[in-house]
């Protein structure tokens, strides 16, 4: 009886562990895919290290900005941006072109990548988050 209990506890632990890492693996997949989409669609202006370019294109390294605007990033990517942004206490007023061809999941991948790179550590973000954020675009 003791053996059965310990064996089932052991099995349960394995399943729990497996489930958790499934989620982790999924997030890692978002991050890796996000990196390659970033390279194609964003990196020219925002730089390989998210450093931006002068006062033309804002850097993605302002962790405070990223944290407080996390739910708006999906909309900015999808629809572009026309409004001035304050990043690292500098004003950026250029237009950002819309990436309207990107799907929700691709946008989720980009957001996952940029909010967990360049000094940002904002954690999980998936297609459900992106779909919810994109519903609230202004």
């Amino acid at each position: 009886m003791k053996k059965i209990v310990s064996a089932s506890v052991f099995l349960l632990l394995i399943f729990l562990y497996a489930c958790q890492s499934d989620k982790e693996i999924e997030q890692q997949r978002y991050f890796v895919n996000g990196k390659s989409i970033f390279e194609q669609h964003c990196q020219n202006c925002h730089g390989a290290n998210g450093e931006g370019l002068g006062e033309l294109y804002p850097p993605l390294t302002d962790t405070v900005f990223m944290r407080s605007n996390k739910s708006k990033i999906a909309c900015i990517i999808k629809n572009g941006s026309n409004t001035a942004l304050m990043v690292h206490n500098k004003k950026y007023e250029g237009k950002m072109p819309a990436e309207s061809d990107l799907s929700d999941i691709e946008i989720a991948e980009i957001v996952n990548y940029i909010t967990n790179s360049f000094g940002n550590k904002l954690g999980d973000y998936d297609v459900n988050n992106a779909a919810a954020d994109l519903k609230n675009c202004q």
Partner: peptide
């Protein structure tokens, strides 16, 4: 231009 120009001028800088 959002294709190669930003890369070029990041380097030219």
């Amino acid at each position: 231009c959002t294709s190669i120009c930003p890369i070029m001028h990041r380097n030219m800088l």
